[in-house]
Design a protein around this nucleic acid. Structure first.
Length: 293
DNA sequence: ACTGTACCCTGTAGGC
DNA sequence: TGCCTACAGGGTACAG
């Protein structure tokens, strides 16, 4: 589910509800998600104020007044829902398109103003961990992350330096969070399509022998940025599970050039090729064999 | 060091 | 209708 545009959309929806507010209590309704919850999880969050809500890669990070960060990952099917007012869990208090789901509502944040923020995750590939704010950058989850694609660090030179000598194909290379942090299966397919690059070509084709960027790398950087910015503007992509924190669906799935469009005609003017589906590293890739080389 | 595959878990869609 | 298989926005633990 959630790649960078979806996580960023969730962050923007949650920030006005969470930042500057105090957590009255936290209910963890099971001992774990993908990993066990932190030791003394509820006690470490209860009573704290939330002083910031950031995104890095596909992580949401709530900074607490205690000096600890609550780091959350949505996995494939994680979602947050804001429930306003009252004590009872009645459907009417939920945003449109959402409702109580006792079997998959795993964590509830009860804020001191009466608002609840509920984390729901059927497949439980998501996780929540805590760490000291000052040590976050050195933590195993963050230490080796690649460039933020919308930040200044992502340049053709950066990509070329990471790609030099790499034999993996471009699809797997761009999926690697140590290279670019935040791209996933949808937006790698879309960025390669927009840049006109074949997912099968070796990553090394982004660099020349001296490690300087090729014209392919120069084309790829703005394509990645543009796809992500347009997707954020559309509120992300809703295929199945993903929802904004207020329950709304994303709209970018209506703008896909290739993702989930196998068999349809390429929309690039003058192309007329047929979109194909292939598999790279066990994940579906969609591309136009005529305009991606 | 790098690369590919299996696996974690649940729900749903499609074929028979 | 029911049963079975394949597949799904993610990341990690291995084996080679």
């Amino acid at each position: 589910m959630p790649e960078l545009p979806e996580v960023e959309t969730v962050r923007r929806g949650l920030a006005p509800v969470l930042v500057g507010r105090r957590v009255k209590s936290l209910d963890a309704r099971r001992p774990d998600l993908r990993f066990p919850f932190p030791e003394r999880f509820a006690q470490r969050v209860a009573g704290q104020s939330i002083v910031g809500l950031e995104r890095r890669a596909k992580y949401l990070i709530a900074s607490l007044s205690s000096g600890e960060d609550l780091v959350m990952h949505l996995g494939m099917t994680g979602r947050f829902t804001i429930v306003h007012g009252g004590i009872a869990d009645t459907p009417g208090q939920y945003a449109h398109g959402t409702g109580p789901d006792p079997t998959h509502d795993h964590v509830v944040l009860n804020l001191s103003d009466g608002t609840k923020v509920i984390y729901n995750d059927p497949r439980r590939f998501g996780f929540m961990v805590m760490m000291a704010h000052r040590e976050r950058a050195q933590h195993a989850l963050f230490r080796d992350l690649g460039a933020e694609p919308l930040g200044e660090e992502l340049t053709a030179e950066y990509l070329a330096s990471k790609a030099l000598g790499r034999k993996v194909n471009l699809k797997a290379f761009l999926m690697d969070q140590h290279v670019i942090a935040g791209l996933g299966n949808i937006y790698v397919s879309e960025a390669l399509y927009q840049a006109g690059l074949s997912p099968d070509k070796a990553a090394a084709s982004l660099a020349n022998r001296r490690g300087a960027p090729t014209e392919r790398a120069v084309r790829l950087v703005p394509a990645i940025r543009d796809v992500l910015e347009r997707a954020i503007d559309a509120g992300g992509s809703t295929l199945r599970d993903y929802r904004h924190a207020d329950g709304k669906r994303g709209a970018f799935q209506e703008r896909f050039g290739v993702y989930d469009r196998a068999g349809s005609v390429c929309q690039t003017p003058g192309c007329g090729g047929e979109i194909r589906r292939a598999v790279h590293s066990g994940r579906a890739t969609f591309y136009c064999p005529r305009c991606q080389r």
